[in-house]
Simulated assay, not measured.
Amino acid sequence: MLKPDADIFEYVLQNAGIRPEETLFIDDAVPNCRTAESLGFHTYTPQPREDWSHLFVN
């Protein structure tokens, strides 16, 4: 299984027992994020050399 095919995302959801609407998927490839979004994931595509640590601040 390879991204951006939906199969890999569905496998992870089932195997990890997580819900897509409660999951943040971070990837530098827009097609991978589009697939994840279509399945209900929240996604973030960082820019090169971007500090995206702000995503993890409470």
Score class of each variant (00 low, 15 high):
G17D: 12
R49F: 14
R19A: 15
V30T: 13
S38D: 13
D5S: 13
S53Q: 07
E22N: 15
M1A: 10
L24F: 09
P4F: 06
T23L: 08
E10Q: 09
G17H: 12
W52F: 15
N32E: 08
H42Y: 05
E37P: 04
V12N: 11
R34I: 12
P20E: 07
A36T: 10
T35W: 04
I18Y: 03
Q14K: 13
Q14Y: 08
L24Q: 02
V12H: 06
Y11H: 13
P4G: 04
I26H: 07
G40E: 11
G40Y: 02
I18C: 05
L55Y: 02
H42C: 00
R34E: 11
L39P: 14
D7Q: 05
C33A: 09
G17E: 14
Y11A: 04
I18L: 09
N15P: 00
V30L: 14
I8Q: 03
P46M: 06
R19M: 12
F25M: 09
R34H: 03
T43F: 06
A6C: 00
W52S: 14
T45A: 11
F41M: 11
F56C: 10
P4H: 07
E10F: 00
F25D: 01
R19W: 03
P31Q: 10
R19G: 09
H54P: 15
H54I: 04
F25P: 07
K3Q: 07
V57F: 06
T35D: 04
D28Q: 11
I26K: 12
A16C: 11
L39I: 06
V57D: 04
D7F: 14
H42W: 02
F56M: 06
R34Y: 01
R49Q: 11
L13N: 02
D51I: 09
M1N: 12
T43D: 02
